[in-house]
Simulated assay, not measured.
Amino acid sequence: MIPRFVVGVLTLLLLGACRESTPEKPVHTADTHQRHPDPAQPELNSAPAVAARAQQRLRTVARSGNIDHDVTSLLLEHYRGAQQAASVERATGRDPDLRALADTLRREWQQESLALGRLAGRTHDKASEEYTRFYQEFSRDVQAACDSAARYSRPPTGNPDADFAAALSAHLRTGLLLVQEGIAHGSDPPLIALAHRFHHDQLHHLRQVQA
């Protein structure tokens, strides 16, 4: 009788310990995974997706009220977006010409980003009423240039090379419009010289992509 009672008590204790040691899965775990998709998903890292995020960042570049400073900030962000799209092509593309272009964009990013970073630190006090109106016109033109990206965008095809070519083409067209605003409204001589070089190089790359 006693041994049977002892066995029963031990059995109950063991069952209770098992229940206590089994952790309950938090209720919010599944929702968290749904809110934060796996960044390795290819559709999130495709050239069209990368270019779309780059275009969105162009719209949110902080404005200082100084045209020369803002032009350098916009071109720096544009170069960053082109370089990121080029990184996708170098990782997933197969077309030798497009891969060569992607490598060229990488080298240009390394060179021009340094020059643009130095120019971004050059600010000028031009807080006159006339300059304020001039800056407002510049801001409207920049907004129109960013809006134009929607006209050039193409739906993704799933082909890395074709998607890179289409995304880069749209990105370069926007960049050409931005640099034209820099040439038209800027006043800093080194910036104007860089803008002319930028326009030449980006137009050349656009023709390469279109070919």
Rank of each mutant, 00 (worst) to 15 (best):
M1G: 14
I2L: 15
I2D: 12
I2Y: 13
I2S: 11
P3G: 05
R4H: 12
V7H: 14
V7N: 11
V9P: 00
L12P: 11
L13F: 04
L13S: 03
L14T: 14
L15N: 04
L15S: 08
G16A: 07
C18S: 15
E20T: 11
T22M: 11
K25G: 07
K25V: 15
P26L: 14
H28W: 13
T29R: 13
A30P: 07
A30I: 12
A30H: 13
A30C: 12
Q34N: 13
Q34P: 10
R35G: 08
D38W: 06
P39C: 07
L44E: 03
S46I: 00
P48F: 02
A49L: 00
A51W: 02
A52T: 07
R53K: 12
R53G: 10
R57N: 09
R59P: 02
R59H: 03
R59W: 04
T60Y: 10
T60F: 13
S64Q: 09
I67S: 02
D68P: 01
D70M: 01
T72I: 00
T72W: 00
T72M: 03
T72A: 14
S73G: 12
S73A: 15
L74H: 03
L74T: 02
L76Q: 05
R80C: 07
G81R: 01
Q83L: 04
Q83Y: 09
R90E: 08
A91P: 00
T92H: 13
R94W: 07
D95Y: 04
D95F: 02
P96D: 06
P96H: 06
D97E: 13
L98E: 05
L98M: 07
A100C: 01
T104E: 09
R106E: 13
R106Q: 14
Q110I: 15
L114H: 06
A115T: 05
L116E: 00
G117L: 00
R118S: 08
L119S: 06
L119Y: 06
A120L: 11
A120M: 12
G121H: 03
R122Q: 11
R122L: 08
H124V: 13
D125M: 12
K126G: 05
E130F: 14
R133Y: 09
Q136F: 06
Q136E: 01
F138P: 11
A144V: 10
D147K: 01
D147N: 02
R151G: 07
R154M: 09
P155K: 03
P156N: 04
G158P: 01
N159Q: 05
A162S: 08
D163H: 04
A165Q: 12
A166L: 08
A166S: 09
A166F: 07
A167L: 01
S169H: 11
H171C: 00
H171R: 00
R173D: 15
G175D: 05
L176E: 02
L178R: 04
I183Q: 11
A184N: 07
P190F: 05
L191A: 06
A193W: 15
A195V: 02
H196C: 10
F198K: 05
H200I: 07
D201E: 14
L203Q: 14
H204P: 05
L206Q: 11
L206R: 15
R207C: 09
V209E: 06
Q210M: 10
A211F: 07
